[in-house]
């Protein structure tokens, strides 16, 4: 099979750079949101959600580790260093995942919107012509089934409670929506990723697949969905335009490492 031949040859130098960028987008998104989820550990509104969010956080950080490992195999450097030791300017996460958690409603709304996005991006990766990514996505996609189920159930429960819960969710949706575009910025190599079959979809296709999933569900729950695409012309629409909250998150994540970086070992 042509695909196997390609996998055996490995990506060309140019494909390698594009692949590393894609893997770092996926890894950084999952690491940052996994860290945000972990911030609820011990302080979630109830014990069930405390357990759920720590479990989901652990999964997301694990998925990030898998993508860092693949990037490392392509010559991007040590996986742990990729996770902990890159300055803000080199990070590839979307501002959408970098925002502070805010209240429980914003956490739930972001969890719902992000998991739907992840599903769409992973679906495209399961059709990747680069076999290691195709297989990793197939594996991660199976675990994400439970995240998606959890985020949908949680949103439905809160939205159907009405009152303050609904009002807070509505507010969260309006707050988060301008940042959605940052998720769909596939970076400077997007055209090449598509042409080479590494990621057989473009940003517009991913976005419309995502909207086809989330918009009807939000409408059914009674939310007025902001005009699609109409509010995206913000400075947060590109990966690289990081939210200021990222720097603080990285400082927290590196707190132990910064005590004595030279002595760090994993």
């Amino acid at each position: 099979m042509a695909q196997d031949d390609k996998a055996a040859r490995g990506p060309s130098v140019a494909e390698g750079a594009a692949l590393v960028d894609l893997l770092l987008q996926m890894a950084d998104d999952d690491l940052v949101l996994g860290h945000r989820h972990s911030e609820w550990l011990g302080v979630a509104p109830d014990i069930e959600e405390d357990v759920a969010f720590s479990s989901i956080a652990q999964d997301e950080v694990g998925h990030a580790a898998l993508y860092y490992e693949l990037a490392s195999q392509l010559g991007a450097g040590d996986a742990d260093r990729l996770a902990f030791d890159r300055p803000v300017g080199e990070r590839r996460s979307a501002a959408f995942v970098e925002l502070e958690n805010g209240d429980w409603a914003r956490t739930a709304m972001r969890h719902f919107l992000y998991d739907a996005f992840e599903e769409v991006r992973l679906d495209a990766c399961t059709r990747s012509g680069w076999q290691p990514l195709q297989r990793a996505a197939t594996k991660v996609r199976r675990e994400e089934f439970y995240h998606r189920l959890h985020s949908r159930t949680q949103l439905h429960h809160l939205a159907k409670a009405g009152g303050e819960a609904f009002a807070r969710l509505e507010h969260a949706l309006a707050d988060l929506w301008p940042y959605v575009a940052s998720l769909f910025d596939l970076g400077p190599h997007a055209a090449e990723l598509r042409a080479t079959g590494v990621l057989p979809a473009d940003a517009a296709a991913l976005r419309s697949a995502w909207e086809a999933v989330v918009v009807p569900e939000l409408s059914e729950l009674g939310f007025g969905v902001p005009a699609c695409g109409g509010t995206d012309a913000t400075s947060a629409a590109h990966r690289g335009a990081h939210h200021p909250a990222l720097a603080e998150l990285l400082t927290t994540m590196r707190a132990v490492l910064d005590v004595d970086a030279a002595a760090a070992s994993w």
């Binding site: 357990v51 989901i56 675990e143 439970y146 959890h150």
Partner: peptide
């Protein structure tokens, strides 16, 4: 079912 998530993933 009480919780989809438990003591381990």
């Amino acid at each position: 079912l009480q919780n989809l998530f438990g003591p381990t993933a």
